[in-house]
Amino acid sequence: NQASVVANQLIPINTALTLVMMRSEVVTPVGIPAKDIPRLVSMQVNRAVPLGTTLMPDMVKGYA
């Protein structure tokens, strides 16, 4: 199973992502692939993302 990107903490709306905010985990449904973590750094979330939430492409500005 492919690992997805999961929030390692509460990420407030419009926050630029950093490595410490994200972890990889095998979850259902599948979200953004963990291999894309380096690409996500500095991108902003367009909503508040609670701890443990799988990041989906529509949550990150400029990803999709």
Rank of each mutant, 00 (worst) to 15 (best):
N1Y: 10
N1I: 15
N1E: 15
N1A: 15
Q2C: 15
A3M: 13
A3R: 04
A3P: 13
A3I: 09
A3Q: 10
A3Y: 12
A3E: 15
S4W: 02
S4I: 02
V5K: 01
V5M: 02
V6R: 04
A7I: 06
A7G: 03
A7H: 01
A7R: 01
N8C: 12
N8Q: 12
L10I: 12
L10N: 08
L10G: 09
I11N: 00
I11C: 03
I11R: 01
P12R: 10
P12E: 14
P12K: 08
I13P: 10
I13M: 11
N14S: 07
N14L: 09
N14T: 05
T15Y: 12
T15L: 06
A16K: 05
A16F: 11
L17N: 00
L17T: 00
L17W: 02
L17M: 12
T18C: 05
T18G: 04
T18W: 03
T18K: 06
L19Q: 05
L19K: 05
L19E: 04
V20H: 08
M22W: 02
R23A: 09
R23G: 04
R23I: 06
R23V: 05
R23Q: 04
R23F: 03
R23L: 04
S24C: 12
S24A: 11
S24G: 10
E25H: 07
V27P: 02
V27C: 07
V27I: 10
T28L: 06
P29A: 05
P29C: 11
P29I: 08
V30P: 12
V30R: 04
G31C: 03
G31V: 02
I32M: 03
I32F: 03
P33A: 13
P33S: 09
P33R: 05
A34F: 09
A34D: 15
A34S: 10
K35V: 15
K35R: 07
K35T: 15
K35M: 15
D36Q: 05
D36S: 06
D36I: 04
I37Y: 03
I37Q: 10
I37F: 03
I37W: 03
I37C: 10
I37K: 05
P38G: 09
P38R: 04
P38W: 12
R39Y: 13
R39M: 12
L40C: 07
V41G: 02
V41P: 03
S42C: 15
M43Y: 09
M43A: 05
Q44K: 14
V45L: 12
V45P: 03
R47A: 09
R47G: 07
A48H: 10
P50H: 13
L51Q: 12
L51G: 12
G52S: 13
G52L: 09
G52C: 08
T53A: 13
T53D: 12
T53I: 11
T54P: 07
T54G: 03
T54R: 03
T54Y: 02
T54W: 02
T54D: 01
L55A: 00
L55P: 01
M56V: 11
M56F: 09
P57C: 15
D58V: 08
D58S: 10
D58N: 11
M59I: 06
V60I: 14
V60W: 02
V60C: 03
V60L: 09
K61W: 13
K61I: 13
G62K: 11
Y63L: 05
Y63E: 04
A64T: 15
A64I: 13
A64E: 12
